[in-house]
Amino acid sequence: MTEAVFEINNVSYEYRDRLEHTTALKDINLTIHKGDFVAIVGPNGSGKSTLLKLILGIKKLQTGEILIDGKKPKESTFSEKIGYVSQKAASFAKGFPATVEEVVLAGLTKKRGLFSRYKKEDYARLDDVLKLLDIDDLRDKNISLLSGGQTQRVFIARALINNPEILVLDEPTEGIDAKNIHSFYEVLTKLKEAGTTILLVTHDIGVVIDQADEVACLNEHLHFHGTNNEFRNLNEADLSKVYGFPLQLVSHDHDRQCCEVAHND
């Protein structure tokens, strides 16, 4: 077994209002190892994004413990080796006066450190990553003039420019068309082969079964954590427990083992 990148131990989280508390996560235990491609799936409001934000340090832990490379987040240097694509990244771009180049280069802010400027090699890396995502012709375009799919690819490029050891993606293909989703997962496959740890939050179960090594099903509790083969063999009752209503996995191409979720009416 390779070393653990993220260790999530007994993590619970509540959204607290003056009058009521809503539980988002309850007693989550999950370990993600180096080089793993783990997908976290679950319905809306299941706590997927909350868990991601706790891991990334955007939200403060209430109970439990999260270790990154065996260290507490404050002591860890993971921010220098992480790439992150947020679910709402595209909303920041609206009307903002910045070019694709400026936005993507911002992914190197931490790596370059305080009081320094971008170097020649950073611009070479920028060229590579823009070509990889097929957006090199958009380099000098203003970010707010791009389509939803193009904007999302710019944010993926920002996450990749860092050469991240860990890639965290929150619904990264939202708004991207089928062709670009395909090329996006080709990029992920290459990164995985290069040893990148990938943590993907999505509700696209079909893609998960095709691409991820491991699947974690979350809906307040961690209902399932196993390999994609084990996930494929989950029975309807287990799956329905996660999603809160009757579901079944329908495999409609055995060679590609691509599955999708359907209502069991």
């Binding site: 990334l56 340090g57 955007i58 921010s79 992480i82 992150y84 947020s86 709402k88 990244a89 920041f92 903002f96 910045a98 400026e102 936005v103 911002a106 802010t109 931490k110 920002r158």
Partner: peptide, 14 residues
């Protein structure tokens, strides 16, 4: 620039 464009990402980047 990063703080102005995307406060959340700047938090992740510490």
């Amino acid at each position: 620039f990063l703080l102005s464009f995307d406060e959340e990402y700047s938090e992740v980047m510490k």
